[in-house]
């Protein structure tokens, strides 16, 4: 088996208009690898939601995607405020997004639930005041 293929993205927290760029780039790369359209769709939605979350809540962060022949793994790391109550954050409709963001159509409380829904495995590691690391895996 060949080695994992790694992609690294810096998710800029200052520029909301560029949020979502990393998932567009990942989509292009996965297409070139010949991964099925359905899997690509799941990876790009999960990643998109995670990317938006990092921009809204954590002032940006980093996204690392590694692709092997068996799965696509997305690692999202930020140094934001952290999630106080993960169980509550996972509930559909629960949101702490500011009003300005909601008026753009984001912050409906579907980010984390969608990430869970579209990935086969998801783990949240968060410490208040330190930051959050989310690992998602979509099997091929």
């Amino acid at each position: 088996m060949s080695e994992a293929l790694n992609f690294h993205f810096d998710v800029d927290g200052d520029d909301f208009t560029s949020a979502g760029q990393a998932s567009v780039q990942i989509k292009k790369n996965l297409r070139q690898l010949g991964i099925s359209p359905d899997t690509i769709r799941r990876v790009s939605i999960a990643m998109y939601e995670g990317e938006i979350n990092m921009v809204i809540h954590a002032g940006g962060g980093e996204a690392d995607v590694s692709v092997t022949e068996d799965y696509v793994e997305i690692l999202l790391t930020d140094h934001g405020p952290g999630i106080a109550n993960i169980e509550q954050a996972m509930q559909e409709g629960f949101s702490t997004a500011p009003d300005a963001i909601r008026s753009l159509g984001f912050g409906a409380g579907m980010g984390l639930p969608n990430m869970k829904r579209y990935s086969d495995y998801m783990n949240i590691d968060s410490e208040v005041g330190k930051g959050t690391t989310i690992t998602m895996r979509v099997n091929l």
Binding site: S2, E3, K28, R31, Q32, L33, G34, I35, V67
Partner: peptide, 17 residues
């Protein structure tokens, strides 16, 4: 899939690297 690099996934991955 027009943009696919190769028929085989491992070959595609090698090429993309």
């Amino acid at each position: 899939p027009i943009s696919r690099l190769s028929e085989s996934m491992s070959e595609s991955m090698r090429m993309m690297a």
